[in-house]
Amino acid sequence: MRDTSDLTTAVARFADRLRAAPHSRLQRGAAAEGLALARELAVRAQRAEDPGREPRTMPDAGVFAVADQLVVAGNDLAEALRTAPAGSREGELDEAVGLVREAAGRSGL
Rank of each mutant, 00 (worst) to 15 (best):
M1Y: 13
M1L: 14
R2N: 15
D3F: 01
D3W: 01
T4Y: 03
S5T: 15
D6R: 09
L7C: 11
L7V: 10
L7Q: 06
T8E: 03
A12L: 07
R13M: 08
A15T: 00
D16Q: 13
D16H: 07
R19V: 09
A20D: 15
A20T: 12
A21T: 06
H23R: 13
H23F: 14
L26S: 03
Q27K: 11
Q27V: 14
R28L: 14
R28M: 13
A30W: 01
L35C: 01
E40G: 12
R44T: 04
A45H: 04
A45Y: 02
A45L: 05
Q46R: 03
Q46T: 02
R47F: 06
A48F: 02
A48C: 09
E49R: 11
E49H: 02
D50L: 10
D50Q: 11
P51A: 13
G52C: 08
R53G: 09
R53N: 09
R56A: 14
T57I: 14
A61M: 12
A61W: 04
V63Q: 11
A65W: 02
D68L: 10
D68G: 15
D68A: 15
L70D: 03
V72H: 09
G74T: 05
N75I: 07
N75F: 12
T83V: 15
A84I: 07
P85K: 00
A86C: 03
R89S: 09
E95W: 09
V97W: 01
V97T: 10
V100A: 06
E102M: 11
A103M: 03
G105Y: 02
R106K: 12
L109C: 12
